[in-house]
Each structure stands twice: as C-alpha cells, then as structure tokens.
Nucleic acid binder design. Structure first.
Lengths: 141, 141
DNA sequence: CGGCTCGTACGATAGCCATCGTAGTACGGC
DNA sequence: GCCGTACTACGATGGCTATCGTACGAGCCG
C-alpha cells in the first residue's frame, strides 16, 4: 500500500463508454485507475477488509451492477462511501452515476486479465470460509 | 481486519514434530494458528504488504525453508521480525528454531487445503506484475 | 418550486501498523 | 566461561484508515 493518491491522477484507460442502458447522467464521472494502473497490493489490501470483501462477494454473486444503497452494511453512509472509494481506486470495482444512484460493477475482465484466477480463488475462499464458520457456529451453538 | 489477536490463542494443531534434521533446540517453539484458525482476511492482509509479499515469493521460489537472516530486506531487523511474525500469526508461514537460526517455511499445504488456488494465483499475479513493472521501467528509462 | 433521497466532502477521532532504536535472551564456538 | 551471532521484546513515533457526524450538491417527484 502506501499509495492511494487521494488527489487522483485519473487515467481511465478502460473507459468503456457505457452503452446507453439508460440516458445516464453525462455530467459526473468518477476517476478509475486504468487497467495497467491496478496494483496487486492495493487489490489485496482492498479485499482484506471484511466489509469490502462482503461487497465484492455480493457483486460477484449477482453478476451485475448494484447501487450503493442496495448494500446494507452495518456502518454509516459516510463509511460506506469510503469503502466504495477504496474499492474503486484499487481497481476492483467500476462506478457510474445513473441518475441519483451510483451503480457498482465488478471489474472482472480487467482483474482476470491482470491477475488470472485471483478473484475467483478469493471468492471461492471467502465462500468456503463463510460456510466453514457458519458451520462451526451452528455446531457450537 | 479488525482481528489479529496479538495475544494469540495458540493452538498449533499442525505441529509437525520436526523430523530430526538437526538435533534442534527443543526448548523454544512458536505459536502458530492451527489450520482452521487461519482467516482469509488475515492472509490477504499479510500478503498485501510488499515486504511480506516479497518474502513469500522468495520462499515459494526456493520451495524450502529459509532462515530469517537470509532475507535482505531494506528495513531493520526489528521490522523484519515484525513482518515474519505477521506472516506466522496469519498462518502463511511456519517458523521453527534450529539452533540460533529461525527457519521459515511456507504453509503451502494448509493454505491449499483451505483456499485452493489462492496462493498460486497471488504468486502468479505477483510475478506477472513484477515483470510488467520491470518492463515499464526499462521502457521508460 | 420544494422537498426527498442518494451520495459526497470535510473535519474529528481512535486504533492499528510499519518503522526504528536500544536493550536483552538464547545458542554455538573459541 | 566469554563473546559473537541471531532474533526478540519493549517503547516511541508517524502515518494510514475505519469510523462517525454534520453539512452540502444532484437528480427525481409531487
């Protein structure tokens, strides 16, 4: 880590022009790291937080974009925004404004191209661990 | 994160009794998390640090145990000790005293059993990113 | 237009963590 | 028995970061 240039130096190489699913608010767009700006340590760091890992798991599960407000995290909205920003700036998710909502999508293609298999292993590991912990909890209680 | 029980609750399930390669100093042994004590977030957190990732990469490369002093990290010995402890407490490496030296080995079997493919993807990703960055640097300069 | 909801920005706070330096413990060799 | 080597423990420090609260800007709806 020791990076996260908060000021951002936006590159947005992967600016897939967002096919007009909805008219989209063209005004605001957010700085994303280009595919080759993505650093492994940042990704690992982003995924190392339980809150963020949960978000990523959910995104992977639905395989589609989700609005920020869809997630019911046990933290305030400020903190949620913060986590989403970390995920975006590390290159794990893509965020686009659509009206008042902000849609979040996993950058699966970019991550797979850069770090083949990584995301899948992490997701599988998270799932298996969740099952294991739930099991232990059920057995204990 | 928000975990890392520094106080440790040592379980040492995986205490492979250390085949007598050398007489070994039986006196001191270190607390390791048992296989099922290993938490994904802790592992990711451990691997998210460049210093520690480098250590893990080196361990994987030689596929054998290495003494702490073998590593020539650009930090003081105190810090090195700290990083090795983080790696051990997160369950990524195993440490055994052998005389005055402390040998470090990757817990590949445990990690593979728990999080199949994870370690490999991370290592592959690290290698590919290192190559990519070295390339960019060579091109730039 | 007025208000509502969604999300951001900014400032504050507390805790963690990477780093260092120094002092101390454990082994092995002379 | 002494000393050097290998690592650890403890304390200090600065920076990051997860968290909150409040105040604000942007679209949508009535």
């Amino acid at each position: 880590m020791r990076s996260a240039p908060r000021g951002n130096g936006a590159v947005v190489t992967t600016a897939a022009p967002t096919p007009p699913t909805t008219p989209a608010a063209g005004g605001r767009d957010l700085p994303h790291p280009g595919r080759h700006e993505i650093r492994l340590e940042s990704v690992l760091h982003a995924l190392a937080d339980p809150m963020r890992l949960q978000v990523v798991r959910e995104l992977a599960a639905v395989g589609d974009e989700l609005s920020c407000s869809h997630f019911d995290l046990p933290v305030t909205k400020s903190t949620t925004t913060h986590h989403f920003r970390v995920l975006r700036e590390s290159g794990v998710i893509r965020q686009i404004y659509r009206g008042t909502a902000k849609m979040n999508g996993l950058r699966q293609e970019d991550l797979d191209a850069l770090f083949p298999g990584l995301l899948d292993s992490v997701l599988a590991a998270a799932t298996s661990q969740a099952a294991r912990l739930a099991d232990a909890g059920a057995t204990d209680a």
